[in-house]
Design a protein around this nucleic acid. Structure first.
Lengths: 139, 139
DNA sequence: CTCGCACCTGTAGTAACTACAGGTTCAAGG
DNA sequence: CCTTGAACCTGTAGTTACTACAGGTGCGAG
């Protein structure tokens, strides 16, 4: 009889986990420190040993971050996912809030771009010292 | 004979400077600490006393910040303005770089919004537990 | 058995402020 | 003249999400 401990993917070192997820080693340790990842078991010498669950969870965190969720929001999402019974509606609410924030930021940047390019257009980039951009910045 | 020291606007307290510029008192002190504002003369008791020059300079900083320039960029702009002979071209170059950055950020946010709203659309927000958003975040 | 890379902990640095704590000065009112 | 109380002072710590050391140990290959 072979033991029914998992046949492979049993223990990833932090370096391997890093390679598989694209997340830096320091960042993984950081996520552990701030409670996004559970502290994994250690080898006899104290090295962290991860399993596929951790790979999956770290992937979730990373993808969420790539989509612009803050760590606080990620924490919220994970809390939902970790709970026995989360609902689609709760997840969607967090997502829609985040989308609103992205839209707001985008609008802010659009306005910035409009104002700034308007100002920049008044300047011909010559070498004379009285620059309309500088005047505009002094208001 | 009246002395020819400036008739008014001579000495603003930091609180007044704050009100006139909309910049918080702590921020003004911070700008001094990091070298954007020169340390002003002090009253006998140690209070900062500003003049209209400082008002003007702080206004410049604030306006630049509102337009999204980083403090580093503001430092660069001020260095140019402070120098005897800055040219319009130099100022414009900084401005155009900044505009490029704004456009890049805007494009990034646009992409984020597209991806995220695509994901959100797959979720009907119901109460069942298997959420397409969560699946997407796990990739 | 040894070599060198990967791992460990803990601390400090990044951007641009903001928010105290604990103490002093100033101006106006009594 | 004296007393309030608001405004000022300094210095330090907190915020976000990591990143980068320094100084030391474990581990696997040859």
């Amino acid at each position: 009889m072979v033991p029914d401990t998992p046949p492979k993917g049993q223990s990833l070192t932090i370096g391997l986990l890093s390679k598989r997820t694209g997340c830096k080693v320091e960042t993984i340790r950081y996520y552990e420190r701030v409670g996004l990842l559970l502290a994994p078991p250690r080898s006899a010498g104290g090295h962290r040993l991860y399993r596929d669950d951790d790979l999956r969870r770290l992937g979730f965190i990373r993808r969420s971050r790539q989509l612009g969720f803050s760590l606080k929001e990620v924490r919220g999402l994970l809390a939902l996912v970790d709970s026995e019974a989360y609902s689609c509606g709760q997840i969607k609410a967090v997502t829609l809030d985040h989308l609103d924030e992205i839209r707001r930021k985008r609008a802010d940047l659009a306005k910035l771009e409009r104002v700034l390019s308007g100002i920049a257009a008044r300047c011909d980039g010559g070498s004379r010292p009285d620059c309309p951009i500088v005047e505009a910045l002094y208001e």
